[in-house]
Amino acid sequence: MFFKKLAATALFMGAGLVHAFSPQAGTWVVTSELDGKPGRGFGIDVQNTTLVMQMYAYENSGQSTFYLVVGDVVDNKVTAPLTKYTGGRYFGSGARSGAAAGSPGNVSIRFTSGTTGFITFPNEGEVAISRFNFGYPFAPSSLKGIWNFTSMGSLGLTTEAVNLTVSGSSTSTGNGVVASSDGLFGCEHQVSGSMAGTVLCAKINAQGQLQRGYWFAYSVNEGEGRMLNSSAALTDQLVSIRRLTTPSGIGTGIVFKDSEQTAPTLTELERQLSQLAAQGASD
């Protein structure tokens, strides 16, 4: 019921969010070359305004090679030389230092979001690129885990964390609700209608009344979207979403993780076993 009501706001969301963004760090691919077979790809990391890209590609002989790109991102665009390296350390070798071995030319990238963009390689036309998601299918199981929602806008700064653990039925536009154990917060991937390709969440009270909703798009562990109020109306609250644990409960940050099983102290157990053995020997 509430998901159907929230879906009515989709007409007002078409423009999405308009603000500065930083491309997500990770594995990127040329979208048209994504066919499940070995090919070209690149790792992108942007820190502050510095982009570092490592690309694996092939020579015209078929031999694999790699390039390094370092450049400054300005207005979501960067142009910098593709630099090839050779002579470095190989598996089993001693210490060896690689050396720059020229460049086939510049590469130009313009990002259209944190997970999409376009790239122009030397001697090639512009092609679409995207962040490659190989760990989370667009399925209910991918929504399980602890999520944090932080919103900012005229309603102030708010945050809440939820643990999605319970699988439910699918709505008319989604592929299966995943909810908190108390059934008061649930999310669902939207697979049809004007919200297809995004995630919709609803928070209700014990009487079944809508408290708020969230609509967002995400990639791997991060997402962005908007908050909806208790009347299912779109607000100006920008929402940042962060996955805190994987569906199996493993922390996604650099500190938080499952508590490790510590080895028990066996001193007393060993003492008792020694006494039992000594008693048995004397009987």
Rank of each mutant, 00 (worst) to 15 (best):
F3P: 10
F12V: 00
G16I: 02
L17I: 15
V18Q: 11
V30M: 15
T31P: 13
T31F: 03
R40N: 12
N48S: 15
T49F: 00
S61E: 11
F66C: 01
F66G: 13
F66A: 04
D72F: 11
V78H: 09
L82V: 11
T83A: 08
Y85F: 14
Y85H: 03
T86E: 08
G87R: 09
R96Q: 07
S97K: 10
A99E: 12
A100C: 09
A100Y: 03
G102N: 05
S103P: 11
G105N: 05
I109E: 10
P122R: 09
P122G: 06
N123F: 08
G125Q: 05
V127P: 05
R131G: 11
F132P: 03
G135F: 12
L143C: 12
I146V: 15
S151G: 03
E160S: 06
N163R: 03
S169N: 14
T171Q: 08
S172A: 12
S172R: 03
T173P: 12
G174W: 03
G174N: 00
N175K: 05
A179S: 15
S180H: 01
G183W: 04
G183L: 02
G183D: 07
F185I: 01
V191H: 09
S192L: 04
G197T: 01
L200Y: 06
A202H: 03
N205E: 10
A206N: 01
R212F: 07
E224F: 11
M227H: 00
N229G: 05
A232Q: 04
R243I: 10
G251Y: 02
G253C: 11
I254L: 12
F256L: 15
D258H: 14
L266Y: 09
L269Q: 07
A281I: 00
A281M: 07
D283C: 12
